[in-house]
């Protein structure tokens, strides 16, 4: 089975500084791929390259190939918006719009042109259920999203991303600002979601990577050092630097 997403010889520059160097990696469908590594290693940059979020960053230049179902994401006639509609994103800091819970989840649907209120309502409910938030908010969909707790806000952002039915969901340290209980709920949710979505998650916590992911990629100084099934990476790393990192000798 071909990879859902893949990069070949991917390099990313910010101005004259190379943030990612020659990364080749396959993202498997319906699996969780974790990107780990010390901060500044380029894992977030890599993630944002997958759905062309870096397009608007001034001075950012991408070299190499990123594919989605074998098609070049940076192809000449591909609109970045088309990519983002199929490759959704959840950010490190929850970023709900200062509007109602309902409008947050419906945002992506509305901008895609969905007007029918019943369909919208159905999709909003479905997405909130998928994000395990429905029971907590079903009676106050009209309330401001900013009134939710931090963990709830992040799950709302996940629901918002799911509402447009992406095929791949990118998560940039989605639980880094949350307490352990909220983190556990997000992790549970991620394991649940992988049955229907392909997930790529950046995390600074190796325990988290071990808990939620099927595959793990270790980045160091902009390079992909090692990539393989999570279990193997954490038990029998091939590269010395990987072993040093996961045993906590640096980073």
């Amino acid at each position: 089975m071909p990879a859902k997403m893949a990069t070949r010889g991917l390099s990313v520059w910010y101005g004259s500084k190379r943030a990612i160097q020659d990364v080749t990696l396959d993202v498997e469908e319906n699996a969780v791929t974790a990107l780990i590594g010390p901060s500044g290693c380029g894992k977030s940059t890599f993630l944002r390259t997958l759905n062309r979020m870096n397009d608007l960053v001034e001075g950012c230049r991408v070299e190499g190939v990123v594919t989605l179902d074998g098609e070049d994401v940076y192809g000449r006639d591909v609109d970045a918006v088309a990519v983002r509609r199929r490759v959704g994103m959840v950010f490190q800091k929850s970023n709900p719009f200062p509007r109602s819970i309902f409008e947050n989840v419906a945002f992506g649907l509305r901008i895609a042109g969905m007007r029918d209120r019943q369909t919208l309502a159905a999709r909003v409910e479905e997405s909130l259920r998928d994000a395990a938030l429905w029971d907590e908010v079903k009676d106050r969909l009209g309330d401001s999203a900013l009134a939710l707790s931090g963990g709830q806000q992040q799950r709302l952002c996940i629901a918002r991303a799911l509402a447009v039915r992406p095929e791949v969901v990118l998560m940039d340290e989605p639980a880094s600002a949350l307490d352990p209980i909220a983190t556990a709920r997000i992790e549970e949710l991620i394991r649940e979601l992988k049955r229907r979505y392909t997930i790529v998650i950046v995390t600074h916590s190796m325990q988290q990577a071990a808990r939620v992911s099927d595959f793990t990629a270790f980045f160091y100084m902009g390079e992909l050092v090692e990539y393989g099934p999570t279990e193997r990476i954490f038990t029998r790393p091939i590269q010395k630097r990987t072993e040093e990192y996961i045993t906590g000798r640096f980073g």
């Binding site: 071909p2 893949a6 070949r8 010889g9 080749t24 990696l25 396959d26 062309r52 870096n54 397009d55 950012c60 230049r61 991408v62 070299e63 190499g64 190939v65 594919t67 074998g70 098609e71 070049d72 940076y74 192809g75 000449r76 595959f215 992909l224 050092v225 090692e226 990539y227 393989g228 099934p229 193997r232 091939i238």
Partner: peptide
């Protein structure tokens, strides 16, 4: 961003440079 290669077909081909994985 500039895409230097821009060739989707090349991506489908197996690449010996892929790091070890199962």
């Amino acid at each position: 961003p500039v895409n230097e290669t821009g060739d989707a077909a090349a991506a489908g081909a197996p690449d010996p440079a892929v790091p070890p994985r199962d």
